[in-house]
């Protein structure tokens, strides 16, 4: 068991966001509020298959939503942690530690912020972008969001609403138009990043935040750092 304090939370509501992705709204026991920095995650202790698994899930809630917070995850084929969570029902109880993690916004600068999301890896960007847009200072921010199909995109209404509301925020979905099994970042995201931020680039003041699943995240990191962006300017979280 972890040595850090463990909390319990009740599942208040479950909503299906896409056929394989659900949001769980959790209320911490004893009226505790969850104070977190946008981008941080919770570490869930899941009693699956006779063992206690440790699985990280990012806090999807907007800053200030501390009473009843959200995690959003997809079911991974044969994955014991996500399958356990997908078998939970409203009123069930979950144990977790945290919040944890350093994949958070730096002190805002005048730099342009580029958020690069591969599929469900968009989750940390919801609170991060909300924080950036409401922080004052009119930070230019772009969200590049890749998925196999348009129907896989999460929180689309919100990205579009923010785009209408904040002139300095733009949302660019990059749809591969393929089945999930055939999906790769080469089908849209990687060429887009290459064309807009690598080829012929002359200004290196941008700050990149990349989040997604597995090796593609490292591929994007290497592409950008290889193009001359500073190490600290290319932050990433690989799930």
């Amino acid at each position: 068991m972890p040595s850090s304090p463990t909390f319990t939370a009740t599942i208040e509501k479950i909503i299906e966001r896409t056929p394989d992705t659900r949001s769980f709204f959790l209320r911490v026991a004893n009226g505790r509020k969850l104070s977190f920095v946008p981008g941080q995650f919770l570490s869930f202790l899941l009693p699956a298959g006779g063992e206690t698994l440790t699985r990280a899930y990012t806090i999807a809630s907007l800053p200030g939503e501390e009473d009843c917070f959200e995690i959003c995850l997809n079911q991974v084929d044969g994955g014991p942690g996500s399958s356990y969570l997908f078998s939970r029902k409203e009123a069930d109880v979950l144990c977790f530690t945290g919040p944890w993690g350093n994949f958070v916004l730096d002190q805002p600068t005048d730099a342009e912020y580029i958020f690069i999301a591969d599929r469900v890896g968009v989750v940390p960007f919801r609170p991060m972008i909300a924080r950036l847009l409401t922080a004052g200072g009119h930070h230019t921010a772009r969200l590049l969001y890749a998925a196999p199909q348009a129907g896989d995109l999460l929180y689309t209404d919100e990205w579009q609403r923010w785009e209408g509301q904040y002139a300095y925020f733009s949302f660019r979905p990059l749809i591969a138009e393929c089945e999930p099994e055939e999906y790769s970042i080469e089908k849209g995201l990687l060429p887009y990043v290459e064309q807009h931020f690598v080829k012929g680039v002359r200004q290196y003041s941008r700050r990149f935040y990349i989040c997604g699943i597995g090796r593609p995240v490292l591929l994007l990191r290497d592409l950008l750092r290889g193009a001359g962006y500073e190490r600290q300017a290319v932050k990433y979280e690989k799930w």
Partner: peptide, 8 residues
């Protein structure tokens, strides 16, 4: 905390 994923 991150389940051994090099994320903390």
């Amino acid at each position: 905390a991150c389940g051994g994923n090099c994320a903390c």
